[in-house]
Structure formats: structure tokens, C-alpha cells
Design a binder for these strands. Structure first.
Lengths: 223, 223
DNA sequence: GGAATAGTGTCTCTAAGACAATATGGA
DNA sequence: TCCATATTGTCTTAGAGACACTATTCC
């Protein structure tokens, strides 16, 4: 029996925008593609969803990141989808885009980082994807605890302050910043732990409260 | 030449949560499935992405809505994706979920509406999807112009006020509500047009400014 | 003229932001 | 001691919300 010719199915992939902070500005991690199309060009880490391995699209993105960086469970959020007949030369494709925020020290030195303001030419629609993710992250940073996921396990308020300023590309009043953090109730003091940075008073170290690990705290808004 | 056996590809579908206002509360449009699985059960409108017809996943969702309701270009936004091996008995599937807001009068009477607080049993993960969308819409309504897309072309401030209250399930002070709308700058008076509703002063009619048709206006926020 | 809803004016209070003062440990 | 940064205190002001008032039309 001859089956009816069916059109080739859509390609289903995931892409991840891995953001970190280096030299005081946001950087994205890019990788050289090891297969066509666009072999050897810098591009976002991504790959096919594997029906036999991945329990969800998010799990596929986590797997890709783990394979490329060794990171086990970064902060990972869905950004949205991009799709259409023309974005991938292999055919009609849909990619679910995720973004991850990680502290730079956790990345292996082999990972190539590029300032988001000075990216190389990118294949597919990766440039637009990164622009969208950066805009989203900046927007969320202004009213949530997002940037704490760019900090290592322990950090001082001053360090976090610098991280916020780097992400938002703006200056923030220190006193008000501290109040904001108290409102979010996401941090907890590490008892007795301080960090000195010269001939001055050492700063209290903080960590993200366990119940907020890899979750987001958002300021209340109302109509 | 014998090709290597490849695993069955993932299923790629779109689902749409069509919301409208009826009897003063949010309702979702559901349709009886006309094919297995779950034939004849109420479910969200949805379907396969058709590589040969659809220019994007969003276009696929628009097509599905058009086929089921005749609506040509409702307010339509991506909600996110759901995916996994178990959510669809046909196999590993990913569905891109969209939500649409439409004025009830534009829907053909054949469309079945259910209050979002009293839905029938739904197949797949459709109940969770609707719950997520409703939460998103409520959240956005509190700081944006989202609910205007539930209003017909012309409406009074009082009517829009009622719509906001229905969506948010809360009461809003009228004077402050008017100020908020002015801040959003999304509405424009229809010169000379008013609507009477009894033996009282008629209300000014408004419309969504053309530049905001099917776009969102959001209050500014800052850190 | 009065009933009823449309639309405006104003007060209070919270909280965001600016600014200034104080605290503290190391050099 | 004194320097530099950490941390806290306070003042001003914009805006959210509550409330009360005025406006206008139809009956």
C-alpha cells in the first residue's frame, strides 16, 4: 500500500541565550557551530529537541547548556518562540528560546564571551533573539530580583549594587537600593561572614534565601 | 539505499485561549474536538502547524481561530510553550500557546463560552494552560491597557471601567481610573459621539487610538 | 425640578528618590 | 589616627487612592 506523500515536518529546536557579567557589562556566550549550516560561525548554543532524551523543551535547553558548559542547573527561563519557513535553510523551523543567567566564575574558561553591545555577525535570527532577550532582562531587572542570578553564592550588597547598575546601565542610589532589596525579602545575611576590600570596613555577606533559589521576586504593582 | 531508522519526530501544534467577557465575567471559548484523541470532548481550539500554509506559529494560531470563529485579526499574544512526552497520547509534543482577547459581540453565537471559574473537564493539559493564561491576563490588566481589547470599537469610560473590574475581579475607584487612562494615552474621544443609558447625562464615546490597535500600553515602572 | 449617571477637584498618605550623617575595621 | 567604604537616618516630592463635589441630560 502506498502512503500519501506528507510534507516534511517542521524542525523543532531550542536555543539558549547564556548571559553573564564580565568587565562590568553584559556578555553573551557564543559557540562555533560544529556542523552545517553555518559551520564554524559563532552562534547561540542550541540544538534539536530529542524526543528520546528530553522531557520537555526546557529540559532540552538545559541539556544543551550542560553539554556545552558543564553547568548543571542555571537560572533558566523561556523567552518565547521564533518560527517560520525562512529562518533556517534546512526548512520550516520553530525554535524555543531560553535565557540563562550565570555568574561568570562558574563558566569554564573555554567559553567565548562577547559584550552584548558588540556581537559578531550571527547566523539565523540569533542577533534579533539576543536583542530581545537583553531587552527583556533589562526590563525585568528594573522591578525584580533577576540580577542576583548573576552573582556567585555569596556576595555583598555593594557587589550586587554594581551588578544591577551594569545590567541596567544606569546608576542607582545606594540607600534606596538597600531598601528595595529589603522589600523583596530575597536575601539573607550569612551570620558572621564578611568580606574586606582594602583598608575599610568589611561588608556583610549575603546569599539568596533558599526558597528563592532559581525563582524570581517581583515588586508589587497595582492599578 | 536503506536509511537509518529515526525516532518519530515531535508533534508541533498551536493552541489558543480565546477570552471574552460575558455576564460580567471572563469566559473562554471551547470547541468539541472533531477527531481523536478525545473526540467530542470540549477543548481549546488548536491544531497542527502546517508547514505549507503557515508563515509562523502565530500565523497558525490565527488561522485556527479564523477557521473556528471567523475572526480575522484579534488581539493575539504568545503565552509560552508546553511540551513533553506525556501530554499528548499521540507522542512527544510541543504546543505553542496563544491567547486572544475579543469583544463578545464579534463572536458568532455558535461559539460555546464557559466561565473561566467553571470549566468542564478538559483533555491534555488544557486546564492548566487556561489557568496560566487567566493569571497572566489578570496580572497584565493591573498595569496595562490589555482589557480594552475586550471592548467593541466604541465604548464609554464607564463600560471600560466595568470591564477592568470584571477582569481584575475587584472594584476600582472611578476618578483614579480615569486618570490612569489619561496616563496611558491609549484612548481618544470620538468627537460629538455620546451614548445615553436612561434618564441621565449621556457618556462620551471613546475608541482605541489607531496607533494602539492591537498593541499594548504599559505604565512606566522603575527600580 | 429631580433622578441618575458623567465627570472633576482636592486631600491624605505612602513610598521613591535625593542627600546627608554615622559606623567600623584595616592601614 | 585616619581613610575608605559600609550602613543608617531623614527630607522632599510625586503619585496612588479615598472622598466629595459639580455637570448634564432625560424624564
Amino acid at each position: 500500500m502506498k502512503t500519501m506523500e506528507s510534507p516534511t515536518p517542521p524542525i523543532l529546536t531550542v536555543d539558549a541565550v547564556l548571559l553573564t557579567l564580565a568587565d562590568g557589562t553584559l556578555h553573551a556566550a557564543l559557540f562555533k557551530r560544529d556542523a552545517p549550516p553555518f559551520q564554524d560561525q559563532w552562534a547561540l548554543p542550541g540544538g534539536y529537541v530529542r524526543v528520546d532524551e528530553d522531557d520537555s523543551a526546557k529540559a532540552a535547553a538545559a541539556r544543551v547548556l550542560w553539554q556545552k558548559t558543564g553547568l548543571a542547573s542555571p537560572y533558566l527561563e523561556e523567552f518565547g518562540t521564533v518560527s517560520g519557513p525562512a529562518r533556517d535553510p534546512r526548512g520550516w523551523s520553530l525554535s524555543v528560546v531560553y535565557y540563562a543567567l550565570v555568574p561568570a566564575p562558574l563558566l569554564p574558561p573555554s567559553v567565548a564571551l562577547f559584550p552584548v553591545a558588540a556581537l559578531p555577525n550571527l547566523p539565523f535570527d540569533h542577533a534579533a533573539i539576543i536583542a530581545g532577550v537583553v531587552a527583556r532582562v533589562r526590563s525585568k531587572a528594573s522591578y525584580s530580583s533577576l540580577p542576583v542570578y548573576l552573582c556567585p553564592d555569596e556576595f555583598t550588597i555593594s557587589e550586587l549594587h554594581a551588578v544591577y547598575q551594569a545590567v541596567l546601565d544606569d546608576t542607582l542610589n545606594m540607600a534606596n537600593f538597600r531598601r528595595k532589596l529589603e522589600d523583596l525579602e530575597i536575601l539573607e545575611e550569612i551570620p558572621g561572614a564578611t568580606r574586606a576590600s582594602g583598608r575599610n570596613r568589611p561588608a556583610q555577606l549575603y546569599r539568596v534565601a533558599r526558597r528563592f533559589k532559581h525563582t524570581l521576586s517581583v515588586r508589587e504593582r497595582g492599578l
